[in-house]
Design a protein around this nucleic acid. Structure first.
Lengths: 192, 192
DNA sequence: GGAAGCATGTAAAAGGTTACATGATTGC
DNA sequence: GCAATCATGTAACCTTTTACATGCTTCC
């Protein structure tokens, strides 16, 4: 149940609407914890109901929008969750499972690794940009977060976020290397 | 929906009972596609109903057990799935999400990385054993699989399975390196 | 006037986890 | 006789995905 903690983490930087939150999930957070709008709106309601968020109605022409802020209880819950022990989820890796049975598909085995390579190459590019934006402290959400915290904490905030992205980058590079080695393997097997 | 393909992959090596399948999921397959018994038994019934598996009742003293075999349609479905394009699932990484907010938990941030290290070190050990067992073609299930396929295919079967495990090992090593760098980071921040 | 983006939701289905529940067999 | 292992299942719940649904606002 980390969706709510991902939400708390974002809203702890600054108050925002559900829509803004959804866009944030589609961008920066997407590489760590993906969530779609069908999950986010109901969760916001639940979290408001449980006292982790408060919503203020803001006018938007004729209609209204709801701006969510984190409450003291919400901040407490986020901290409690960060301090708790990680429960590592069971491994579930479709690509690797398919790769295990690639002898059944000699015609498409090379394509499999080419697509794996393409997928993670594209991801790597986005992650490198993200790393830059964290290290340079550009990115409006990070700036908003820093503005709420004392300057003495800034180094740690940046360091942990950059370290997180760095970990994703290394994992992604491992996938790229695996795909490249896979292509070589397929060619070697084809050569006989 | 890869559970059924994981099942088809295992049963394609040799017929077995649900219980044996569950044990296989708890061991070798666990690192690629985890599944518990509450998922497996109902899925077996569904797959039998849909014609991907057939069950023969075998006696077991007073009671009976059901031995599942893969059908032609099941083999075809497995091949079709291996040939199909991978749909990469959305990223969802609890540990990395927590790491992002570690500035909120200065007291436990070192422990977080220590546990990450311990978790992946233990996993690495199991994966290294698994790699050995694949490369040496020990492991009764792999031997059963090889026995069903012509000798000319054996090299490819072993190569793809070993390559899969090698990929998991590299990913795991990346996590270990990340945890070690995290510990150093925490110590550096604490030293000021 | 129309397109892009802002904004908020729901319903149904699929997939996965946790806990409960039962009984036979094998080996000590 | 008892413990471990073999063997099979169900129920409730939680999480996630896919698809549907609606309407306002801003900019061109």
């Amino acid at each position: 149940m980390s969706l709510r903690h991902a939400i708390l983490g974002i809203v702890s930087a600054r108050p925002m609407t559900g829509y803004e939150l959804i866009r944030t999930f589609a961008n920066s957070v997407a590489y760590t914890w993906a969530a779609g709008q069908a999950q986010i709106y109901p969760e916001l309601h639940k979290m408001e109901h449980e006292g982790f968020l408060t919503a203020q109605a803001a006018s938007r022409g004729a209609s209204e929008k709801r701006v969510y802020s984190i409450t003291a209880a919400g901040g407490e819950e986020l901290r409690r969750w960060v301090e708790a022990t990680t429960r590592y989820p069971a491994e579930r890796d479709v690509a690797r499972l398919r790769a295990t049975y690639l002898e059944l598909a000699p015609a498409t085995s090379r394509t499999f690794f080419e697509q794996h390579l393409a997928h993670y190459t594209a991801l790597l590019e986005k992650l490198e940009l993200r790393r830059l934006s964290v290290e340079q402290r550009s990115g409006p959400l990070l700036q908003a977060r820093l503005a709420t915290r004392p300057a003495a904490e800034h180094a740690a905030i940046i360091a942990f976020k950059a370290h997180g992205v760095a970990g994703q980058i290394e994992r992604t590079k491992a996938e790229i290397a695996w795909a490249q080695a896979g292509i070589e393997l397929v060619d070697r097997l084809a050569a006989g």
